[in-house]
């Protein structure tokens, strides 16, 4: 089994920008590893995350995510890869007209073999796992910020992803609920052996990581490889 994420020589320049936001970035993440990506704003962390998440087309270099080479990948290949990744955003981005359970089930409807009963049962289990079993039938508008972000965690993990990508998941939350959400996320990921790449500014959550990767000015400045070397 190869590494869930393996980047080498990745550079990226925005259409309008004159200088690259990513320069020759190399990064490898091992099975089950929880990696924090930190750095000042404008250092290129979010761009790196969107490339790894197959949300943006590659320009140069090599980026293999869950076995899929993204350099030159088609839109269809990228959409297919996204189904195997759990995403957590700054905002919860839940559909306001669906209940918590239905929102989580949306991540499961992409599997054509699943049945409605299975999907709702699985969504219920995931909500139990994030401690929201009692709120399964609530609309997002009836939940607190921390609860909504926990629903988003449940949605990200429901489809048993091979990788979780998170972007400042604590940014919109107060200190306590932010920590709760991140601990919940990392605990669930560890139980399931799912690797996490998490972009954050938040110094309070640095202790949850196996490794902290720092970025500056489009380059990775520390710890691009797992401590024990990539698991091959």
């Amino acid at each position: 089994m190869s590494s869930p994420i393996a980047l080498s020589g990745v550079s990226y320049t925005y259409d309008k920008g004159d200088r690259p936001v990513l320069r020759e970035v190399g990064l490898t993440i091992a099975e089950g590893e929880i990696v924090l990506l930190t750095g000042p704003s404008g250092s290129g962390k979010t761009t790196l995350l969107t490339l790894v998440g197959a949300l943006r087309a590659m320009q140069s270099g090599s980026c293999t995510v869950l076995g899929q080479q993204l350099m030159g990948a088609s839109e269809a290949q990228r959409v297919a890869l996204r189904r195997r990744i759990g995403f957590i955003f700054q905002q919860h981005n839940l559909l306001g007209f669906l209940t918590a359970r239905q929102n989580v089930a949306m991540a499961l409807e992409l599997d054509p073999a699943s049945t409605e009963r299975d999907r709702l049962a699985r969504a219920g289990e995931m909500l139990e796992a994030v401690g929201l079993g009692a709120k399964a039938e609530s609309l997002p508008g009836q939940l607190s910020g921390g609860q909504r972000q926990r629903v988003a965690v449940a949605r990200a993990l429901a489809a048993r992803p091979g990788l979780v990508l998170a972007d400042e998941p604590t940014a919109a939350l107060d200190r306590q609920s932010g920590q709760d959400v991140v601990r919940l996320l990392t605990d669930l990921a560890r139980q399931r052996g799912v690797p996490i790449l998490l972009v954050t500014h938040d110094p309070r959550i640095l202790d949850i990581a196996d490794r902290i990767v720092a970025m500056e000015d489009g380059r990775i400045t520390s710890a691009p490889e797992p401590a024990t070397g990539p698991a091959i």
Binding site: V79, R82, F87, F89, N93, L95, G96, L110
Partner: peptide, 12 residues
């Protein structure tokens, strides 16, 4: 935003 999220999690 919600539609973009659906696209991000793999909806075409």
């Amino acid at each position: 935003k919600e539609y973009a999220t659906l696209k991000a999690i793999g909806y075409s």
